[in-house]
């Protein structure tokens, strides 16, 4: 995945959880450190769907722990 797209994922997560980008560590646990719960997680996936024109299955939420995991997941789905 290109750096530009990685940055876009970070921006998108930041917008949804309303925490400034510069305060989000891509390796931080989104549940533990950023306060994301399952409903917000689904909302992040919904925003990714729209942004990258993909369909991120909700049940993949269980396997995602960090922003970097989200980036990897998007890369995997985009092929």
């Amino acid at each position: 995945m290109e750096d530009k797209e990685k940055k876009e994922v970070l921006t998108l997560v930041s917008k949804i959880i309303k925490i400034p980008e510069n305060r989000i560590d891509p390796n931080a646990n989104i549940f533990y450190d950023l306060g994301v719960d399952s409903l917000l997680g689904v909302e992040i996936f919904a925003a990714l769907d729209k942004k990258f024109n993909i369909d991120v299955p909700e049940d993949r939420l269980r396997s995602v722990k960090t922003v970097n995991d989200i980036i990897a997941l998007v890369a995997e789905i985009k092929g």
Binding site: L39, V42, E43, F45, A46, D49, K50, E58
Partner: peptide, 8 residues
């Protein structure tokens, strides 16, 4: 609901 994604 098909999913919990708000657009859906």
């Amino acid at each position: 609901a098909e999913s919990l994604k708000s657009y859906q």
